[in-house]
Design a protein around this nucleic acid. Structure first.
Length: 303
DNA sequence: TCAGACCCTCACAG
DNA sequence: ACTGTGAGGGTCT
C-alpha cells in the first residue's frame, strides 16, 4: 500500500464538507430519480451502497455525515456527481424558450449516479405508482430482505438495499407481502437473471446506447421507459430520455399542441431536439411540469 | 396502433 | 366512520 493510502486511512472521519456551486440538494433528492431519501428536519437521510448517510445543504457547501468513520469520500462525490459542471451541461441545450424557463425555475437540479441493480429494481417497482407509494414498497423490500446497517446511536434502524442474489432466493409470496402486486414476478425473474449473469448490468456502460437498451428490455417488467431510466440514472448514457406521463404531457402541450404524437415520435424528438445531454433536459422538464401542475392546483383549489 | 389486464394504495366523494 | 370510485412516473399481449 502506498504512503498516500496509509495516511488517508489514518484520517478516517464521520464528517466531511464539499464546496459546491449551484447544487439544489432538495430538488435533486426529491425529484423521483432515487427513492430512499427522507427529509429529517433540515437534513436528508438515506442509504448509499453499504452506508447510512445524512446530508445537509448550506451556503455553497454540502455537509455529509456517516454512522461509521470512512477513509475516503469518493463514493459520495460520485453518487452526487459533484464534479459535473452544470453550466457546461446547459451549454449543450438548444435555444428553446420553454426549456430555458424550466432551467430557470430550478437551477441546481442534478442527476445522481446510482447503483445499477438498485436503480433497475426500484424502477421495475415504479410502474403505475406514485412516488410516495414507490418509496413505501422499497422500504418494505429493504426491511424484509436487506441487511441492517450501522446508524448513529439512538437512531431508528436502516437497511441496505437487498442484492440480486438475495432476492433471487425469495418467493413470489414474500415479494407480494411488500405490497408490490403484479410487479413481484417481474422483479423476481429479473433478480434471478442478474444473479445468474444472464445480463451484466455493469457491462451496459461499455456498449452502445441502443444495445444497452435492447438488453435491459429483455428483462420482464422493463420496457422503454424503465430501460431509459436505468441508462440515465446510473450515469451510463446522458442521451437517454425516459418518457413518462409527465414528459409526454409537457412535450405534447409545449411542442406539438396541434397534433397527436405517437410514443415513437416523442422519443425521437426528445433524443434529437435536446442534444447530447437530453437526459438532463428531461429532468428539468419533468421537474418543471410538476411545479406548473402544483401551482395550477393551488390556484384552482377552493381557498 | 390500441385497448385491457395486471395488484395495490391513497385521495376524494358521497 | 365507512364504502365506492378513479387514477397513479408502465409493461405485455
Amino acid at each position: 500500500m502506498s504512503l498516500a493510502h496509509l495516511s488517508s486511512d489514518l484520517a478516517e472521519t464521520r464528517h466531511s464538507i464539499f464546496p459546491v456551486a449551484h447544487y439544489d440538494l432538495d430538488s435533486t433528492l426529491a425529484s423521483g430519480q432515487a427513492f430512499r431519501w427522507r427529509r429529517v428536519q433540515d437534513a436528508w437521510e438515506g442509504v448509499i451502497g453499504p452506508r447510512w448517510v445524512r446530508l445537509r445543504s448550506d451556503a455553497g457547501v454540502i455537509r455529509a455525515e456517516t454512522a461509521e468513520p470512512v477513509s475516503h469520500w469518493d463514493w459520495l462525490r460520485s453518487y452526487l456527481q459533484l464534479e459535473v459542471d452544470l453550466d457546461a451541461v446547459f451549454a449543450t441545450f438548444p435555444q428553446d424558450a420553454f426549456l430555458q424557463q424550466a432551467v430557470q425555475a430550478c437551477q441546481g437540479l442534478r442527476l445522481l449516479k446510482q447503483d445499477p441493480w438498485e436503480c433497475l429494481a426500484s424502477f421495475i417497482l415504479s410502474s403505475t405508482k406514485q412516488i410516495c407509494q414507490i418509496e413505501q414498497i422499497i422500504d418494505a423490500l429493504c426491511v424484509r430482505f436487506g441487511s441492517p446497517l450501522a446508524v448513529p446511536a439512538g437512531h431508528s434502524p436502516a437497511w441496505r438495499f437487498p442484492d440480486a442474489h438475495r432476492l433471487a432466493r425469495a418467493s413470489e409470496a414474500e415479494m407480494r407481502a411488500c405490497k408490490m402486486g403484479f410487479r413481484a414476478p417481474n422483479l423476481l425473474v429479473t433478480a434471478r437473471m442478474v444473479d445468474q449473469q444472464t445480463i451484466d448490468l455493469e457491462a451496459l456502460a461499455g456498449s452502445t446506447y441502443e444495445e444497452a437498451q435492447r438488453q435491459l428490455m429483455m428483462l420482464p417488467g422493463v420496457g422503454d421507459k424503465i430501460a431509459n431510466c436505468v441508462l440515465l440514472f446510473c450515469g451510463f448514457y446522458p442521451e437517454a430520455f425516459p418518457i413518462d406521463v409527465w414528459i409526454k404531457r409537457v412535450l405534447q402541450d409545449q411542442y406539438f399542441p396541434k397534433q397527436h404524437c405517437t410514443a415513437n415520435q416523442l422519443q425521437q424528438f426528445g433524443r434529437t431536439h435536446f442534444g447530447p445531454r437530453a437526459g438532463y433536459a428531461q429532468q428539468y422538464l419533468f421537474h418543471y411540469a410538476r411545479v406548473i401542475q402544483a401551482e395550477g392546483a393551488r390556484q384552482s383549489a377552493p381557498r
